[in-house]
């Protein structure tokens, strides 16, 4: 048992080292606000997710697609949980490609629940052309695709500052203290009042960054709440079972002597 623990500890340390060392590449440690979805029983804040969706549609979706999401997801359990009527109305505000008409031309139609989120661009080339060569990445799993996850995304949205003197930035490149090399092709968009929240919350840049990051965490991991809920039950079950088996095992070995 003693060796076992030694070995396990070594292996875990090894993994931990690996995780840290890989990402050490001269980046500033991101901010760490308190997230409601952290911890073993964490959950999303519904209202924040709903506001986050508003920030995404009004600010981000002009450049960033979210191809893995469907409008129906917005009403699913564990997400923003808008009502069906609300989501139908939200979807109908977007145009998507419909079936070809009798002449074979593709007709645009209002989106319905089962449609994927409408993309800002036809294809990657169009996206590049519209953004000076830098393609704004799809945001569906962005939070899981960046080291630091939600903290990193949140920090990046708030990390814009004036470039230090002597630093020359190319056209279409901005100074952001949390970006790699402090340079990023995305301009600052979340200045105070960039959206007008329908629930009356004051739209400070911190508030908007928080809400949209919460929203993006959900889009990246839509089953997070179910996962933690089931996980808690599973671990409880396994703990009880391990106790039972421990005593059963002891009893069996006692009897054989």
């Amino acid at each position: 048992m003693q060796y076992l623990s030694k070995l396990l500890i070594l292996i875990f340390l090894n993994i931990a080292f690996f995780q840290i060392s890989v990402q050490a590449a001269e980046m500033k440690e991101p901010l760490h606000p308190e997230w409601s979805f952290e911890g073993p029983l964490g959950k999303f804040e519904r209202a924040s997710l709903q506001r986050g969706y508003q920030v995404y549609t009004e600010v981000c979706s002009g450049c960033h697609s979210m191809e893995l999401l469907s409008y129906r997801n917005l009403m699913e359990e564990g997400g923003p949980e808008f009502s069906e009527a609300q989501v139908k109305a939200m979807a109908a505000a977007f145009e998507v490609k419909g079936a070809p008409d009798e002449y074979g031309d593709v007709v645009m139609r209002p989106a319905i629940l089962s449609d994927k989120f409408a993309s800002p661009y036809e294809n990657e080339q169009q996206g590049r052309a519209a953004n000076g060569g830098a393609y704004p990445p799809d945001l569906s799993v962005m939070v899981k695709a960046r080291h630091g996850g939600a903290d990193y995304v949140y920090s990046l949205l708030l990390g814009y500052e004036d470039a230090p003197e002597g630093m020359i930035l190319d056209d279409g490149v901005y100074y952001n203290i949390y970006a790699k090399g402090q340079k990023i092709a995305m301009p600052q968009l979340l200045s105070a009042g960039a959206v007008e929240y329908s629930d009356g919350t004051e739209a400070t840049s911190e508030q908007m960054a928080r809400d949209v990051t919460m929203f993006l965490t959900w889009t990246a991991e839509p089953k997070l709440e179910a996962r933690k809920r089931i996980g808690f039950k599973v671990i409880t079950y396994l703990l009880i079972l391990s106790f039972l088996l421990y005593f059963t095992n002891k009893q069996i070995w006692k009897e054989s002597h």
């Binding site: 073993p40 933690k228 396994l238 391990s242």
Partner: peptide, 24 residues
């Protein structure tokens, strides 16, 4: 039953770690 139960106990302890990774 000696090693069946002992192995089972060890397996469940292993499963606790496994579940920790999977769910959290």
């Amino acid at each position: 039953p000696h090693y069946v139960v002992k192995d089972l106990f060890a397996l469940v302890v292993f499963l606790i770690i496994f579940a920790g990774f999977v769910f959290f």
